[in-house]
Amino acid sequence: MNPSISTVMLSVEGHQFAIDLADNETAAAFAAMLPLQTEMSELNRNEKYVYLDSSLPSNASNPGTIEAGDVMLYGNNCLVVFYESHATSYA
C-alpha cells in the first residue's frame, strides 16, 4: 500500500476521526474508492453500516473483540463502523 494513504479521515455529523488502514489488499482497494460520501444505517445499537457499490478483496478472520472505533469489512462489500466495544463471533 502507498504509505501516504495509511491514515484517512472519517467525518460523522461534523466530527472528524482518523482511521488507520491496515497494510493489505482490502484497505488499498478501499482507499482507491475515496473520497466517499454515504449514508449509513444503524444496527444493534453499536454499529453503523453501508453496502458499497462494488466488492473489495476480502480474507475473513475473527478478531474476538471489536473495539469502539473499529472500521471493518463484513463480507466483501459491507463497510461497518463500530461505536461500542464487544466480543464477537463474526468473521
Rank of each mutant, 00 (worst) to 15 (best):
M1F: 11
M1Q: 13
N2E: 10
S4W: 06
I5E: 09
S6I: 05
T7G: 00
T7D: 00
V8A: 00
M9I: 05
S11F: 03
V12T: 01
E13K: 01
H15K: 06
H15D: 03
Q16D: 08
F17I: 06
A18K: 08
A18S: 10
I19W: 04
I19P: 00
D20S: 10
A22N: 12
N24D: 15
A28Q: 15
A28P: 11
F30D: 12
F30H: 15
M33D: 09
P35E: 09
T38I: 11
T38K: 09
M40R: 07
S41T: 13
S41V: 08
S41F: 13
L43T: 12
N44W: 14
N46F: 06
E47M: 00
E47Q: 02
K48S: 01
K48A: 02
Y49A: 01
Y49F: 07
Y49R: 00
V50C: 04
Y51L: 11
Y51W: 06
L52E: 03
L52C: 10
D53I: 03
D53R: 07
S54L: 11
S55N: 10
S55A: 15
L56H: 05
L56F: 08
P57L: 07
N59F: 12
A60G: 12
P63Y: 05
G64R: 07
T65Q: 14
T65G: 08
G69H: 03
G69A: 06
G69Q: 04
G69I: 02
M72N: 05
G75K: 00
V80F: 02
V81M: 03
V81S: 04
F82I: 02
F82M: 05
H86V: 10
S89Y: 07
Y90G: 03
A91N: 15
